[in-house]
Structure formats: structure tokens, C-alpha cells
């Protein structure tokens, strides 16, 4: 569903690249966590998928299509296939819950009857029945994030990108949100979630892709937030030894689930 081939993104020629020769494949229907410190390249990764930025080199494929070949007037079509959720919800404060979700359908020209049918259904999926007419400030943070998720998936995108969706929420609420995302994932949507929240990652046991300084240093299936061995020193040593290119065995770049698991267990 999402495939990065040797993708490098350089914002500033003098600084190190934000992403450095990334190879990664996320399959249809997969749920992947993107973890790593601030500045490790998570947001750049998401921006490249959305074609908010162009890769400096390499190719980004979304749903089988190289985004570099999508002309600017067809970018909206690409984005209709991708839902996005943010840490700060980004709801429209003057609009009700219903109107916030309906907005995403209105602007792409869905008819009123379709909107009337679809929005309540999606609100039910995220667990907000009966709150259609509330304004965002009348909702808790968790509920607001559910509205944002409903808006992101109301047009049935194949991919849902979540950029630290639980960053502003307490642990219990976060788990609720994760339940919603998991449900959406089980309906067939590919979910990529960038996060710092170790509890959530450890609880979910999904694929984990860890970035550091623009390089994938870990890609494990059903993994934890951190691997058991102190990978910090190891990866630094690896990079020192072989330049920028991480050693494939220790750091599987585009690992399938099995490969990644094998590699992860190897490290264990």
C-alpha cells in the first residue's frame, strides 16, 4: 500500500537528510507504528506519503502509484484515498460534530443524501452516537479525537495516517482511541501511526518501525516500543563502521513481517 524505495529527503543541503535512503513497505491492511525521537523523520515520512513534499531522491509509491508522477491537479484525488489524524485534532470550532465530519464530504462534492446516511454511520463506528449536535469545545479531548478520526475515514480512504493521535490524551482515553483505530484497521484500512507512546505500542503489539536521524534502525512485527537490547550503541557502531548504510541483518530495512520478526528475535 505504501512503498518507499531508497527515499532520501533533504531539507537543507548543509544539514543531515531528514530521511536517508529509506526502504520500507507497508502492506494493505497492515497496522504499523512509526516510532522515534522528535526529528527522527516520522513527520517527513507522513508528508511524503501525502505528497506535501517531494522526495529528494528515490520513489514513494502509494497504492501502487509513484507519487512523483501524480500531477498537481490530481493530488487531491491521492489525498482522498488517505485519511489523516493529528495530535491537535484540528476540528472546526464553530461547526457541530456532524458538520465537522460532513465538511470532509461536502468539499469533495458528495450529495446531501449520501452525507446524511454516511456521517451517523461513521460517528457510530468511532463511538459518538448521540453527540452529533455538540460543538467541539463541549467534548472531551478523546471525543474530539474521535470526531477527527471520523472525519478522516468518512470518505473511506485506503490509508489512515495518524500523527501522534494520542499525544494530548491521558492513557485511558488513548486506549479508547487505539480501539477505534484498531476497528478501522480491521475494516481493511491500512493504518500508519507515528507515536511516542510506549504504553500503547507495547499494548497493541503491532509492527514497529523505528527511525533515528532519518534511518530505519528497527522494523519488527508484533514488537514493543523498545527492543530489549540497548540498540542505541549498537546502531551507532554499525553506522560508524559502514558509513550511512545500516547492516541489513541487524537492521532489516524493508522487512516483511517474517523477516522483521526473525531479525528482531535475532537481536533478542
Amino acid at each position: 500500500m505504501i512503498r518507499f524505495e531508497n527515499v532520501t529527503k533533504v531539507y537543507d543541503q548543509k544539514a543531515r537528510p531528514a530521511l536517508d535512503s529509506i526502504n520500507l513497505e507497508i502492506d494493505r491492511g497492515e497496522f504499523a507504528f512509526l516510532v522515534g525521537a522528535s526529528g527522527s523523520g516520522k513527520s517527513t515520512f507522513l508528508r511524503l506519503v501525502l505528497k506535501e513534499d517531494r522526495a529528494s531522491s528515490g520513489a514513494v509509491y502509494v497504492a501502487g502509484q509513484n507519487v512523483a508522477n501524480i500531477s498537481s491537479w490530481r493530488v487531491p484525488r491521492l489525498r482522498r484515498g488517505i485519511g489523516v489524524v493529528f495530535q491537535d485534532f484540528r476540528l472546526l470550532p464553530q461547526k457541530t460534530v456532524f458538520a465537522n465530519v460532513a465538511f470532509a464530504m461536502q468539499v469533495i462534492g458528495k450529495s446531501r443524501s449520501v452525507i446524511r446516511d454516511t456521517v451517523p454511520e461513521v460517528l457510530k463506528t468511532v463511538g459518538l452516537e448521540g453527540k452529533e449536535n455538540r460543538l467541539p469545545h463541549e467534548l472531551s479531548g478523546g471525543e474530539q479525537q474521535r470526531v477527527a478520526i471520523a472525519r478522516a475515514v468518512v470518505n473511506r480512504p485506503g490509508i489512515l495516517l495518524a500523527d501522534e493521535p494520542t499525544g494530548n490524551l491521558d492513557p485511558t482515553t488513548s486506549m479508547g482511541i487505539m480501539g477505534v483505530l484498531d476497528k478501522i484497521n480491521q475494516n481493511g484500512t491500512t493504518v500508519v501511526m507515528a507515536t511516542h507512546d510506549d504504553d500503547i505500542v507495547n499494548e497493541m503489539r503491532k509492527r514497529v518501525v523505528e527511525l533515528r536521524n532519518g534511518v530505519i534502525i528497527r522494523d519488527e512485527a508484533k514488537a514493543l516500543y523498545t527492543s530489549m537490547i540497548p540498540i542505541v550503541g549498537q546502531s551507532r557502531r554499525l553506522r560508524d563502521a559502514s558509513g550511512r548504510e545500516p547492516e541489513p541483518a541487524a537492521v532489516p530495512a524493508a522487512g516483511t513481517g517474517a523477516d522483521a520478526r526473525a531479525a528482531g528475535e535475532g537481536q533478542l
Binding site: 487531491p76 482522498r80 465538511f103 468539499v107 470518505n155
Partner: peptide, 14 residues
């Protein structure tokens, strides 16, 4: 609004 419109794939015209 326009930020959200971009994200959900509204066309340039809209």
C-alpha cells in the same frame, strides 16, 4: 478550513 480541505482532497477549484 482550507488546511482540512486540502487534507481530505478537495480540489483546487473548491
Amino acid at each position: 478550513e482550507t488546511g482540512i480541505m486540502r487534507l481530505v482532497g478537495a480540489s483546487k477549484v473548491v
